[in-house]
Design a protein around this nucleic acid. Structure first.
Lengths: 185, 185
DNA sequence: GATTTCGCTCAACAGTCGTTGACTCAACGA
DNA sequence: TCGTTGAGTCAACGACTGTTGAGCGAAATC
């Protein structure tokens, strides 16, 4: 089989990264082992080290993702933007995001990464919202979605199993809208 | 000093349990070690095993808590009940709850325990809410609070740091109320 | 006061983990 | 064709973990 060396290398590296994402997402940073990743990628554990240097760097590479391009939003667009992230999440939330979320409570590096992602989202929402406590309300919106995503994707709460994303969006829209508007004392 | 044997035993056991709760809450199940718990309780690691049998049982004992007694609730009381759990949580959320939450995404046993606690809360809220999708809306309310608690207590999101609980309750009340009421198609 | 009980410690075992260095062998460039 | 590079493997090290059994010494029992 005439597979060039560079190509082979790229494929194996990708296979390792995919395996790492799956295991980190399923088990979290601690329980996922280099040996397990290697076994799933059909590769020797030492090769994982040779390519990624350490378990820590493997995790960072597996979790790294491109931040979504941002445009301007108004208050109403903010609600739909948050609900949109829900829609994406209920479909095929990227394995890397799941890996980050799975470990964010127990692995310091994952926690830092999660804080950064959430902070970016909060910034974006706050710009679109009136009032001086806009950041606080934006944070509450973001954490609301975090809770629902955690409950659905990671804890697999029964009540959310198999509920179509449109219905969730429909139920959540008034609730999120209430966090957007400026209250009257 | 004449401290009776039974009393001494009880004190040491309590010291170990307290240490376990703190470490499980700070580090999660995996990173918290029997040796670490023993060191913090100023005791030999073997004693922890002798008293609790295994790390798993130590965790269960540390996390076990008495479910709050439940009375009747109406739809409006449900919102205040959820907000009340927030109030408690922002003050001195018991170390055992923090330990459970910290590990719920990475430790299967903690996940099961969390599901049970959340399920109980969902049941309680659903009874107080009208409509056939009451359980779903109750789940969304519960997960909303979970997200905010996680963000505040475990991820320590900057935006929530030092915000008085009354203001959080004030901002969240309309949002939660929107999840309670029956929508008109 | 002698004996038993038991809270507690000490030292070690077995397993798993991340990580490393020496090695094999096929693809590559001259 | 020959030497070189580099993808990939093998076996092992050292550290850390949960867990165990033997033993010590003071409190309890008679």
């Amino acid at each position: 089989m005439g597979v060039p060396r560079a190509e082979r290398r790229r494929r194996t590296e990708a296979r390792i990264l995919d395996a790492a994402r799956v295991l980190f997402a399923e088990l979290g940073y601690e329980r996922a082992t280099i040996r397990g990743v290697a076994r799933r990628a059909e590769v020797d554990p030492a090769l994982v080290m040779q390519y990624f240097g350490s378990k820590q760097e493997l995790f960072q590479q597996a979790v790294r993702m491109t931040p979504p391009a941002d445009g301007e939003l108004d208050a109403e667009g903010a609600v739909e933007h948050v609900l949109g992230s829900l829609t994406m999440k209920l479909g095929e939330l990227p394995q890397g995001s799941l890996a980050m979320m799975r470990s964010m409570l127990t692995h310091p590096e994952a926690a830092a990464s999660a804080r950064q992602v959430l902070s970016r989202q909060i910034d974006r929402l706050a710009e679109a919202m009136p009032g001086d406590d806009a950041r606080l309300r934006a944070a509450l919106m973001t954490l609301t979605m975090l809770g629902i995503t955690v409950g659905h994707q990671l804890l697999e709460i029964d009540e959310l199993r198999g509920v179509p994303q449109e219905e969730l969006a429909r139920l959540l829209r008034p609730s999120l809208r209430a966090l957007t508007g400026q209250e009257v004392s």
